[in-house]
Amino acid sequence: MLRFLIKRLLLGTLTMFAVSLVAFGMFFMLPRDAVATMCVKNCNPERLERVRVELGLKDPLIDQYTGYMKGIFVGRDLGSAQGGYCDAPCLGYSYTSSEEVSDIFARVLPVTLSIVLPAAVLWLGLGIGLGMLSALKRGTVFDRLAIGFSLTGASMQLYFVGGMLMIIFVYTLKILPVPHYTSLWEDPLDWAGGLVLAWVALAFLFSAVYARLSRAQMLETLAEDFVRTARAKGLSKSRAYGRHALRAAITPIVTIAGLDIGGALGGTVITETTFGIQGLGRTAVEAVRLGDLPTIMATVLISAVFIVVANIVVDLLYAVIDPRVRLG
């Protein structure tokens, strides 16, 4: 187990290194002058040139890259124009918003976590519950309704569902505030009230996929010999299905759930835009639009961390659920 963990962490670090190289390289391949884009007034060539030197953009690419990476691990001096010394893990100084990138992340990361994690709990509960029940009630009205629900959900777009939810609950019924983010620790009720529509919208779309997946998995498992054995032992239906079948059916779903949550943490831009909430996703898109290299690097790296960590967690969970899986 420990060996597995060390191996995967090393592999994850390697992945991160590759991701950072690619992100860095792509930024400099863009046919765009970040400094000119940022500049609002008095943009004479001398001034632009001076800013380029201040930002280190005139240095050799390899120096820029190693400088950035060094900042992450040991911190570095960014110069007086960029807020002086930046402690490790230094993600750099934003070109556009005059603050350290780590400060930006301290602000937007809780927002994205607050959107994705409760939504994931909702969509997993709803999707798996619905799928399992409709498998057990295959062919009934309930099953058909559940299939209809998941087909509807799977063919919807988030901005449409989100918009409709806002029209209904915020602007027509006026029972919910305009979506916004408040810290959970400051005001839990306002935190939930401001995000609940985003959770519901995400859960609706994602649970559709999970309902279909769980239904198929459960139907397959119900036909397994060991479920028949459980019944032949004299177990009640609820115990045979709810324990013996469910445990086996849920294993592949755990894998997909882990990857989905990891992916969603790095890519909630549509959700954030739909509900007008500033999280990791919108920050990333804006950084790309403005050519804010340090912020781009940081968002790409953090999204990659989510995926890598999700993968490791999924593998560990798999070994916990299925004793046949030996890690090593």
Binding site: D225, F226, R228, T229, A230, A232, G234, H244, P323, R324
Partner: peptide, 20 residues
């Protein structure tokens, strides 16, 4: 009655026992 008065053994014991 199942498992108490009448019990059953199946063809493939690997798939008939719960793997987990």
């Amino acid at each position: 009655l199942r498992g108490r008065d009448v019990a059953m053994i199946f063809q493939d014991p690997l798939s008939a026992l719960h793997p987990f």
